[in-house]
């Protein structure tokens, strides 16, 4: 199940679609890609290169590098990258 977005205090812009390994996900422009994945129920963002164990958001501030994915062909920490319409995300599963 996806994590719940908090509704109080703010109004989000109209949602857009992003592509995650061929699957289309609704996300809000400006929120981090990590948040969008988290909300979509994708908690395991990649597997570790050593033992292929699942990893998720850990520091949320671009330090731990656990949430990296390929975004539009570039290795990117998803916690720092804002959602843009049409972005293509490829999660790092079982790949060094």
């Amino acid at each position: 199940m996806g994590a719940r977005r908090i509704e109080g205090g703010i109004a989000r812009p109209a949602p857009v679609s992003i592509d995650v390994d061929g699957q289309s996900i609704q996300a809000f422009p400006g929120e981090s890609v990590a948040t969008a994945l988290w909300a979509a129920g994708i908690r395991a963002l990649r597997t570790s290169p050593v033992s292929a164990s699942a990893r998720g958001i850990f520091c949320a501030m671009g330090v731990c590098q656990e949430c990296v994915a390929d975004i539009d062909g570039r290795t990117t920490p998803t916690c720092l990258e804002p959602v843009r319409e049409g972005m293509r995300i490829s999660l790092r599963w079982n790949r060094p």
Binding site: A3, R4, I6, G9, A54, G56, C59, A60
Partner: peptide, 25 residues
């Protein structure tokens, strides 16, 4: 501590205050 769903307190703060999403149920 490496399991998805475990995060720092600072990370939870960012999710809650800035991203406006819960760290879990």
């Amino acid at each position: 501590w490496t399991l998805p769903g475990v995060m720092g307190l600072a990370a939870a703060t960012i999710l809650l205050k800035s991203q406006r999403i819960l760290p879990g149920e």
